[in-house]
């Protein structure tokens, strides 16, 4: 994941680029077989230990999903962590410091 978190005038803006195929389950491969659905279903963002956003995704979210949101507070050096799980049970967490 690539995460940017920046605090300005009391608001922290978080922008995230995840790496994921986000396969819809609607496409077929060259032999005509359906490519199974494989996409992120749930996502949580935390500021230090407080949840600042939780989201549910469907297969209509683009490959390598992008997310941007803002929360009140946050100081330079604080931690922002983003976690996701997908429909196959894979998961990933990354964190950055607020700049």
């Amino acid at each position: 994941m690539r995460i940017r978190a920046a605090a300005k005038e009391g608001v922290t803006e978080v922008r995230v680029l995840m790496s994921h195929v986000m396969e819809t389950g609607q496409r077929k491969d060259s032999s005509g077989a359906v490519i199974p659905a494989h996409f992120i279903t749930e996502l949580t963002a935390k500021h230090n230990d407080k949840v600042v956003l939780s989201a549910q995704f469907g297969a209509s979210v683009s490959t390598n999903p992008y997310l941007a949101f803002k929360f009140n507070g946050g100081a330079k050096g604080d931690k922002v962590a983003v976690s996701w799980v997908d429909n196959k049970g894979d998961s990933r967490t990354d964190e950055v410091q607020i700049s």
């Binding site: 956003l53 989201a55 469907g58 209509s60 979210v61 803002k70």
Partner: peptide, 23 residues
């Protein structure tokens, strides 16, 4: 084909202002 793309839960203190990218 599946119309719902994403749902965001906004806790107190988070701004009702989100962006993503869809197919």
């Amino acid at each position: 084909p599946n119309m719902l793309a994403a749902t965001f839960d906004i806790p107190a203190g988070t701004l009702p202002d989100v962006q993503t990218r869809v197919k």
